[in-house]
Write a protein that binds this DNA or RNA. Structure first.
Lengths: 236, 236
DNA sequence: GCTTGGGGTTAAGGTCTTGTTAATGAGAGA
DNA sequence: TCTCTCATTAACAAGACCTTAACCCCAAGC
């Protein structure tokens, strides 16, 4: 439900500030520090907006933007250090949707993020209006398991699986972080909310319910793997 | 065919500079100096983008933007004199897509104009690809339920169903977003308006009334489905 | 084999969401 | 101004859902 934002910034201090402020405003935030992880995260996370620093280790922002542009229409907000890079950033070469020149104020960034997201929503609206209301349905697919983000519905072998709200949230979160080991604390923070006070065993219970619904054999899970002493890992 | 840009700026010097530079880059430019003409031009000209100064005689930029937003999705780039107006400009109150704080460089303006237009073009391509009809739809039909958009009338089994204004708005909105989960907040924002302050339970009540009128068995709805923890979903 | 600790499993409250109804208020039109 | 319609909100009921806590089981180390 909350909109997801991917931050790609190698400088830890700025990255944290960005993440903090966006979270405070109710966004689901994921932050990475290099180009290669950026690609990976963008692909599995399917964020609603990407904040991308131009200067990056491994694979610079130019490259990342160019690649992502071919794969998705997700709006990209570029962070540049030098004013004279603007032309390349916004031009056909990269195709960012917006940019900010460092240093910038957090207020300005928030304003631009919101403007960008609102535009996206407006456009979808427009598409719906101009005819058959078939907006593209966003989905995450793993074999015979599909999570339809637009419908907030999960199907297994094309049969809808009724999930309780928290189960769905949890599964979506797992799916967006496929292959990563996720500690109970991390899951609680992101799915339940930073203000959740309670037992981390709560996660276990929900995992069990999920397993019963999406695993072939819940007692021998293949999708949601237990990492003893660590947490869980979703394998797809 | 060149893209058309409408400039709304009361200061002649700046207006001419803007027009000159945009023309030089191949845009078709129309420039006006006050809010009232802005509305008129925007309506007849249907520009691809509007550059709108905040401070205007007759009708200020806030008002102009607010009015135009309800009529069209044309991207609006706001020019503001003061940094602290950003929040209002980009916020829900006005809904500009981008803004520039005076003074700004022409290069920066051009960059933002192009970014904005680029995105619009991208989206249109996307729309074309997904085969969305260009023609305005007159009716939306779902089995035995028909929504006549031009007449603003709903029939079930060819029998007209009397709907109250908000009920109709809500139903049309659902219909245009068939298959999408819609949160109460989203519905409120779109059907009630950006500026609606109030209880999200309001939606529930209207949904109930709608269900009573268009569902076969209102207590076991097949069209307007409750998505627990999420909102509602119209299934057609 | 035994011990230990983490994870699995279950069911009982307690809490939160939604459905439903009715009263109040706002606004249009007579 | 009065009347009527419609929108909004409050309040309660019903039921779905979440959390906790208790108990069980298994894996790994001894």
């Amino acid at each position: 439900m909350p909109e997801t934002i991917l931050i790609v910034e190698d400088e830890p201090a700025l990255r944290d500030t960005l993440a903090y402020n966006l979270k405070k405003d109710g966004f689901a935030v994921e932050a990475v520090g290099d180009g290669r992880s950026a690609l990976a995260s963008a692909r599995t996370l399917k964020p609603d907006l990407i904040i991308l620093d131009l200067m990056l280790p491994e694979l610079d922002g130019f490259e990342v933007a160019r690649i992502l542009r071919k794969e998705m229409t997700t709006p990209i907000l570029m962070l540049t250090a030098r004013d004279d890079e603007i032309d390349r950033v916004v031009g056909l070469e990269v195709g960012a949707d917006d940019y900010l020149t460092k240093p910038f104020s957090m207020r300005e960034l928030m304003a631009r993020v919101k403007a960008q997201l609102r535009r996206t929503r407006l456009i979808q609206e427009e598409m719906a209006k101009s005819g058959v209301a078939q907006v593209k349905q966003e989905k995450l697919t793993f074999d015979n398991l599909t999570i339809n983000l637009t419908r907030r519905e999960v199907t297994l072998n094309d049969k809808p699986i009724p999930l309780k709200p928290k189960e769905y949230d949890l599964l979506e979160f797992f799916a967006r972080h496929k292959g990563q080991m996720l500690s109970r604390e991390f899951i609680l923070e992101r799915v339940w909310g930073w203000d959740f006070i309670g037992d981390s065993r709560t996660v276990d219970v929900h995992v069990r319910w999920l397993r019963q619904k999406i695993e072939e054999d819940a007692s021998r899970p293949k999708r949601i793997i237990t990492v003893r002493g660590g947490g869980y890992r979703f394998e797809g």
